[in-house]
């Protein structure tokens, strides 16, 4: 599993590998000053980072120029959330890594985001279904995290909360318009709610990292967010004259442990290839 690309700080990179190897005892806190909940925060940061990357694909592809701008703003907000967390994670996982070490030099197995955010973007309805769920989740998540025992996490959450409320508002307005618009838009929006379904349960899964972070009162147990998130989405779906689908024959698993779906590899290849082609370069 070792990286093919030279890193600026090989020893830091090696210890990072040990730290985040899936299934390994991740939070031993071996390095001096290390805090054990780095992996939990990496999950939050990676969700925001990967979704920002997907939303960035909409620039020049949105249904109206005004919407190019709106999706660009949301991508910038999420990118900002990730950038707010990565350097802090680097300071508490003992590796001293910077934001680009995390974003550009990590292999797929070391990313901790959920599958929802890495899926290909689909049509506009697919994007709005995903944004509705993800932003509803983020609103509940960041509301809870503003009370985090870690001041940095609470600060990031406080700033993010304002942003994700706007994202939820944006998604809600569009889901209602597509659901209660034309026959075609209703059909597409309903289909989008079905498409996104298998990737939702994972948002609320416990893993070792989230249990530990919750025990330390730094993080929040994902399952505790479930009902409030569903309630938020359900209100919008009802207003949109759509049906909230229930039950899926399969569900995604393992994103938090570095087990990803096929689109993730292509996403990283595109995102990382220039940085990795020029080892040690600054931009």
């Amino acid at each position: 599993m070792s990286d093919h690309v030279t890193s600026a700080a090989p020893s830091a990179s090696e210890s990072a590998e040990r730290e985040s190897l899936p299934g390994a005892a991740e939070n031993t806190g071996a390095a001096p000053g290390a805090k054990p909940y780095a992996t939990y925060l990496l999950g939050l940061a990676d969700d925001a980072m990967v979704y920002a990357q997907r939303l960035g694909e909409w620039m020049t592809n949105a249904p109206q120029i005004e919407e190019d701008m709106a999706l660009g703003n949301i991508a910038l907000d999420l990118l900002g959330q990730a950038r707010g967390l990565y350097p802090y994670i680097g300071s508490i996982d003992g590796t001293g890594r910077g934001e680009d070490d995390y974003a550009m030099l990590r292999d797929e197995r070391r990313w901790h985001n959920v599958h929802l955010v890495e899926q290909e973007r689909g049509d506009f309805a697919d994007e709005m279904a995903r944004l509705l769920w993800f932003s509803a989740y983020q609103v509940e998540l960041h509301t809870a995290l503003t009370a985090s025992a870690d001041d940095v996490v609470a600060g990031v959450a406080g700033k993010a909360l304002k942003e994700v409320r706007y994202h939820l508002d944006h998604a809600s307005l569009w889901v209602v318009r597509l659901g209660d618009g034309t026959e075609e838009s209703h059909r597409r929006m309903q289909a989008a709610l079905e498409h996104v379904l298998p990737h939702l349960a994972e948002l609320f899964d416990h893993d070792e990292a989230s249990v530990l972070a919750a025990d330390l009162e730094v993080g929040v147990l994902p399952s505790t967010l479930h009902d409030a998130v569903v309630a938020r989405v359900a209100r919008v779906v009802e207003q949109a004259t759509l049906t909230l689908p229930d039950g899926s024959r399969w569900r995604s698993r393992g994103g938090r442990a570095g087990i990803h779906s096929r689109p993730m590899g292509s996403l990283l290849a595109e995102m990382q290839h220039i940085a990795r082609s020029h080892p040690g370069a600054t931009w």
Partner: peptide, 25 residues
């Protein structure tokens, strides 16, 4: 945008392309 070699560059590029949309408008 999807290939910018650093996160700082990615943020700047998104903001720039967004500005171009704005200027068009």
């Amino acid at each position: 945008i999807t290939r910018a070699p650093s996160l700082r560059r990615k943020a700047i590029l998104i903001a720039k392309v967004q500005d171009e949309a704005g200027h068009g408008l």
